[in-house]
């Protein structure tokens, strides 16, 4: 609540200084009003890293202009305080706008960053037991390390549905993912998927074992689908080192 009060306090300051500019007839009030309105739009549009430069430039430029103006109009020097007040009003308006907009923007940037971080951290894909590629990569490192120590083999199965029509692809992918999670050994082997591929990492097995899992998987699919010959490709390869899985995420780099 404290943060909300602060941002609303700032908003009040922006509104008050804005209204003061509009209502009271200080020197250059019309020009300042236009500059203020334009500044709000610019501050909203530009990235936050340039906001301060813009704000400081406006403040200093207007100040420099007033100094030159006063040098050229010595008769107005008796009214210096009014010109200073004009400058102060613009400064208060633009600085409070800058802080408020900056705060809101940074909240937004932070939220976007956290959403990306959360996506990377999610272990399973939405509504399924299939791992996200990042989690797949992370767990694969442990599996490969264990395989290295114990001199066991690790095999990667790839099911590529890229050739299937776009209309059906989504539903087909869901069915294939479901079948994959039912085929593998729970909390032992790993499954992940991309837009058009499913990957299964088989732990502590050999070529024959991998072939066995593949056939089991295909039998399961035959129970679900009407295909005689599957319109997608099946591949199996032995995984020797982590770099082979680089495409899945940073954990394997």
């Amino acid at each position: 609540m404290e943060k909300n009060l602060k941002s609303c306090g700032l908003l009040l300051l922006v509104l008050t200084s804005g209204w003061t500019i509009l209502v009271f007839q200080f020197p250059f009030s019309r020009e300042i009003a236009v500059a203020s309105a334009v500044s709000i739009v610019i501050l909203c549009l530009i990235h936050d890293r340039y906001s301060f430069f813009y704000t400081a430039s406006v403040i200093v430029s207007f100040g420099a202009y007033l100094i030159v103006f006063m040098f050229r109009n010595p008769s107005l020097q008796a009214w210096e305080l009014y010109y200073i007040t004009s400058h102060l009003l613009l400064t208060v308006f633009i600085v409070s706008s800058w802080i408020m907009i900056s705060y809101i923007k940074n909240l937004g940037y932070e939220t976007e960053r956290m959403k990306r971080e959360l996506d990377n951290m999610r272990k399973t894909q939405h509504g399924t037991d299939v791992l996200t590629p990042a989690e797949f990569a992370s767990q694969a490192v442990y599996i490969l390390k264990a395989a290295e120590r114990n001199r066991k083999e690790t095999w990667l199965l790839t099911i590529d549905i890229g050739t299937v029509g776009k209309r059906m692809r989504n539903s087909l992918l869901t069915a294939l993912k479901q079948a994959a999670t039912e085929t593998i050994r729970e909390k032992y082997d790993l499954v992940t998927s991309t837009e058009d591929k499913i990957f299964i990492l088989l732990k502590d097995t050999d070529g024959t074992g991998a072939e066995c899992v593949l056939r089991r998987y295909q039998d399961k699919m035959r129970g679900e689908l009407n295909f005689v010959n599957f319109p997608f490709e099946f591949q199996k390869e032995q995984v020797f080192h982590v770099q082979q899985l680089r495409r899945f995420g940073e954990a394997t780099v």
Binding site: F52, V60, A64, I67, F71, P74, Q77, E80, I84, H87
Partner: peptide, 25 residues
């Protein structure tokens, strides 16, 4: 002196404030 002394003083204040704001940013 034919110079707007208050305005000049005020701008020194503004520049000083801008320096401090820069460090905050």
């Amino acid at each position: 002196v034919g110079a707007p002394l208050e305005m000049l003083w005020f701008m020194t204040y503004i520049v000083y404030v801008c320096q401090l704001l820069s460090s905050l940013v």
